[in-house]
Nucleic acid binder design. Structure first.
Length: 664
RNA sequence: CUCCUCGUAGUUCAAUGGAUAGAACAAGAGCCUUCUAAGCUCUGGAUGCAGGUUCGAUUCCUGCCGAGGAGACCA
């Protein structure tokens, strides 16, 4: 069975017979232009005892015997290999889609920690990037054969939680998510809303109180609800700094197990967590195990105190327990405050031990933004000096921050883009775009919008339109706008190298044209359209296959039909572009190594860009090469070709967490 | 001040030390009696500056300039 990887390895082995110092399979490159060849060996660096031509001659025998290589050409310092695309296509197209068996991560246990929110405010764009990365990586590693355990850590206790609790206690008047009104402007701009809504002084509080009492019952997302009180605390504390002390008092009460306080904490936490669940579900993020800081902080403090006995840990002059990292060129790190309260490190240390016990992992990947790089250096060093057995297995996968235009000039406490709101915005953009397309299509066809086949889309009430509408009245359910919006968002974020910062402009960034998730969906939908139509016409691929006598069932894929081969007789005036078919075949052949690369680099952007290329090449093919209307001699083969492309799209998109849509 | 990351078309992103630095958006011109025109084709535009290593540097090294992040018991 054909595999590019194997071919490269075989070729390298053969070439090494003629070289003084051996090469490896990864020195091969792909020529910049397909006309040059399919595989290239740059010979500049090789210590050739002979000339490039002589090497070429020495390889002739091997080439003659190798079924996949047709020819070698010399182009300056390069040796270019022309592969037999017909042969390769025959094997690739009948090959089953990549399975997780016999791949190199088989049975390795990988624990991933990602997202890890604070339960006092809703998820924002940074969490989205984190979550999408984690989910895509988990999927990719799973395909490579790993056993992936998706985990998260919720910071559900501490002073920040106490702040939102206090604000609710003082200014909540018993409001709940179920009674809260959810106005768009509030969600978009909670800060501005908070000051408008709550204002200052007793009068505005009275006003607000009566406002809540008169609210219609419309449920607000719990995390947004809780988040508003956290913001409110900030507002109020500015006027009245003593509120901070009150919040600390509340935290102490909580730690002491004061019943009403714990009850309030539970209530608000549940609201927030339910809100998170909804957002996670929307984004297609799921965890196998969620750790809560509230459940480990006591143990964590104990462990930190115990480790005080370790010679690398000591007390500083204030009484904090610190890890002495100076000799490693790092700043000392507090692992337990003098007053006995915990810091992040306290819990992270404990949690690592707990996870090691829970899962006995081979690899533990922390997906945390690069602003924590230094912290993780310190943390891992601590594990090293205390002799944690799993220290070699830990890995911090850092990703760049998501910046906003304002943040680029002046960051710090920049504005936040709310995750839920973002998805909603995208849906709206899609609906507007669809309407525009609809009108344009009508114009092109010289008909009024009302007579256009797309007309009915816009007769559907808005709320249903978002959920999903029917297409052409044929009863096939059109994919929901929401899925398209998610495809756009996910692709937009995942196409970027995780290490790069991501500049996000709320209005422009997630474009719906060009290199986008929508483009992918559109290309995939086109494959589906062909395949569905093929079935309709009773052009059953399997049936046809039996009638094809050639060695490979796909033998004919390259046979340009007689009438088209004759000079001047072209399809759509462009001619069937063999280059377009060949490009696609080589591209399909590269799928396996793309997945491998993504897994190795822990970088889904390789796969995302691969899929974009696939869509691009497919669209090129689509424009120039008829499938269903192709002459019978090649029709079946082309349908199978489309099927293979569709399968690759499906798997690749699913790995990125993008749901392939039958129709766009 | 120290450390980390990063400077590529107007903008958002590509390019295991290799061939003419690729796309997309934005602008203009074309293409539906044909498998979905959210598509396709054509036209311009870029490696911050200065050195170094190399047969060859966007990539590696040094310095400068610029951006972001971290260094504090702040979560």
């Amino acid at each position: 069975m054909f595999s590019l990887k194997t071919l490269k390895q075989n070729l390298a082995e053969e070439i090494n017979k003629h070289l003084p110092s051996p090469i490896t399979a990864d020195v091969f490159e792909y020529p910049p232009k397909p006309e040059m060849g399919d595989l290239a060996l740059p010979c500049h660096g090789l210590q050739l005892t002979t000339k490039v031509e002589e090497l070429k001659n020495k390889l002739e025998d091997f080439i003659a015997k190798n079924p996949y290589i047709k020819e070698i050409r010399i182009a300056g310092p390069y040796l270019n290999f022309i592969l037999d695309k017909e042969k390769i296509a025959g094997e690739i197209l009948t090959k089953k889609q990549l399975k997780s068996d016999n791949l190199n991560l088989k049975s390795k246990k990988v624990v991933i920690e990602y997202v890890s929110p604070n339960s006092n405010k809703p998820l924002h764009l940074g969490h989205v990037r984190n979550g999408l990365l984690g989910e895509a990586l988990s999927n990719i590693l799973e395909l490579r054969g790993a056993k992936v355990i998706r985990t998260s850590l919720v910071n559900d206790r501490g002073i920040h939680i106490a702040k939102s609790m206090l604000a609710y206690q003082k200014f909540g008047y018993g409001e709940t998510p179920a009674t809260a009104s959810q106005r768009k402007s509030e969600i978009r701009n909670p800060e501005a809303d908070a000051s408008r809504r709550y204002g200052t002084g007793p009068k505005s509080e009275e006003k607000f109180k009566s406002e809540i009492l008169n609210l219609k019952s419309k449920t607000e997302k719990g995390d947004a609800f809780v988040g508003r009180y956290y913001v409110l605390f900030g507002e109020k504390a500015k006027e009245n700094p003593s509120l901070l002390n009150e919040a600390y008092e509340l935290l102490k009460k909580w730690e002491a197990g004061d019943k009403p306080t714990v009850a309030l904490w539970k209530k608000m936490n549940n609201w927030a967590l339910r809100g998170f669940d909804e957002t996670f579900k929307n984004l297609g993020i799921k965890f196998d195990k969620i750790y809560f800081e509230s459940q480990i902080y006591k143990k964590a403090k104990k462990r930190a105190a115990e480790y005080f006995k370790n010679k690398f840990l000591k007390k500083d002059e204030k009484g904090n327990i610190i890890a002495n990292l100076a000799k490693f060129g790092l700043a000392n790190k507090v692992v337990l405050r003098a007053d006995g309260t915990s810091v992040y490190a306290t819990n992270d240390i404990e949690l690592a031990f707990q996870r090691a016990k829970d899962f006995k992992f081979d690899k533990m990947i922390y997906i945390v933004a690069s602003e924590q790089d230094y912290y993780f250096k310190q943390l891992f060093k601590i594990f090293e000096v205390v002799g944690a057995p799993f220290v070699e297995k830990l890995f911090h996968l850092n990703y760049g921050l998501v910046l906003l235009p304002e943040g680029k000039l002046k960051s710090r406490e920049g504005a936040r883009v709310d995750a839920d709101d973002l998805i909603e915005q995208l849906e709206k953009m899609l609906i507007i775009e669809a309407k525009k397309r609809h009108n344009n299509a009508a114009k092109r066809q010289n008909t009024t919008p009302a007579n256009s086949p797309l007309h009915n889309i816009f007769q559907v009430p808005e709320n249903e339109r978002v959920a999903g509408v029917n297409w052409r009245g044929d009863g096939v359910k059109m994919a929901s706008i929401k899925n398209l919006a998610l495809a756009a968002l996910k692709f937009y974020i995942l196409q970027v190298d995780p290490k790069s910062e991501l500049l996000f402009r709320p209005e422009e960034s997630v474009s719906l044209l060009g290199r986008t998730g929508v483009y992918l969906e559109y290309a995939y939908a086109r494959t589906q359209s062909i395949l569905v139509e093929a079935k309709k016409r009773h052009n059953n691929a399997a049936k046809r296959q039996n009638t094809t006598p050639a060695n490979s069932p796909l033998h004919n894929i390259f046979q340009v039909p007689e009438n088209e081969r004759v000079a001047g007789v072209n399809w759509r005036g462009d001619g069937v572009k063999m280059a377009s078919i060949n490009n696609l075949i080589m591209h399909l052949a590269k799928y396996e190594e793309t997945i491998e690369l993504s897994a190795k680099n822990l970088d889904p952007s390789d796969l995302a860009l691969y899929l974009y290329d696939l869509a691009k090449k497919f669209n090129d093919f689509y424009e120039t090469t008829p499938v269903l209307n192709a002459p019978e001699s090649v029709r079946t083969q082309r349908i199978l070709f489309i099927k293979k492309i569709a399968e690759t799209f499906e798997q690749g998109m699913k790995l990125l967490g993008i749901k392939p849509l039958q129709r766009v």
